[in-house]
């Protein structure tokens, strides 16, 4: 690994200046960036560490919603009782990344900007309707999380831009979310398929809103709006679930690789989506934490 000039500025302005250099990479937890650099797959000319910037660290209430610093370690999410109560699916997704030691470093911002189609936290954030605050030379903008990944290892961020915060809306009344993934191992593994689901049930159990997002079945984490739409207005009966599965099957484009075949991924996408919706619904009904 050739030495990369490392800097850890304590303010965003300085970080943006450093990150604007050609070939510079932003460092959050480093659990992808450092590994890929050591393996020779990346050769950053500079690494700009966000962890000394206040805004990039910690979980803050924002009305009934949450602002999560982009470099906040995943471990901190599980320690935040209010966040766990509001968005258990997001927290369970972040709690599946790597191992305990990895999660003491790994962050939502890093997981998003590494742009792996199999990133665990991204489908959960998309399902939850999270947004990313993008800072750049031209100022700041807030975009839906699903607008950030562009393809494996690629984002829509312009040169010099970085994600400084993730924002989660308030949990709607009657809302619940969940994330499930399949990996051959229990830990230290990459999702073969991941499914995030967030939905809202009214007092009668009728679904009034639903978002379904999948990982590892397309070049990016994928929001399948038709899958959510298939559930809205239903009580999640068999027919509604079948319609959701059909929408998922039409939207995804899994590939064969060393981790699984496309056929298996297609099958598991349906299994996990069904289970994730059931789990999110149980949370919406208050039956499950």
């Amino acid at each position: 690994m050739p030495p990369s000039p490392y800097s850890a500025p304590d303010n965003l302005g300085e970080a943006l200046g450093l990150a604007a250099a050609p070939g510079a990479r932003v460092l959050a937890g480093g659990t992808d960036l450092l590994i890929q650099t050591r393996a020779g797959r990346l050769a950053p000319t500079a690494m700009v560490d966000l962890k000394r910037i206040d805004r990039a660290m910690g979980i803050r209430p924002a009305g009934q919603g949450f602002v999560i610093g982009a470099a906040t370690p995943c471990t901190a999410l599980r320690d935040d009782a209010a966040l766990v109560a509001a968005w258990p699916g997001v927290v369970e997704a972040a709690s599946l990344i790597g191992s305990v030691q990895v999660r003491n470093r790994a962050s939502l911002g890093g997981n998003l900007c590494n742009a792996s189609p199999a990133a665990d936290s991204v489908p959960a954030l998309i399902a939850a309707g999270a947004t990313a605050v993008v800072a750049g030379p031209g100022g700041e903008r807030e975009v839906p999380v699903e607008a950030i990944p562009a393809g494996p290892g690629r984002t829509t961020l312009a040169p010099g831009e970085l994600v400084i915060e993730l924002r989660l809306p308030p949990r709607p009344p009657g809302g619940g979310d969940a994330y499930l993934r399949l990996t051959p191992r229990t830990e230290m593994d990459i999702a073969v398929v991941g499914v995030g689901a967030a939905l809202v049930l009214d007092g009668s159990g009728r679904c009034t809103a639903a978002r379904i997002a999948l990982g590892a079945v397309a070049p990016t984490a994928l929001l399948v709006e038709a899958a959510g739409a298939a559930l809205v207005g239903t009580k999640l009966e068999e027919g509604a679930i079948a319609a959701m599965l059909a929408a998922i099957d039409a939207a995804i484009s899994p590939i064969d690789d060393q981790r699984a075949s496309a056929a298996y991924r297609r099958r598991i996408a349906g299994v996990l989506a069904t289970r994730a919706v059931a789990r999110a619904a149980a949370r919406a009904r208050g039956e499950q934490a």
Partner: peptide, 8 residues
């Protein structure tokens, strides 16, 4: 060891 999966 990521994709050569010994048990953890």
């Amino acid at each position: 060891f990521l994709d050569y999966r010994v048990p953890v």
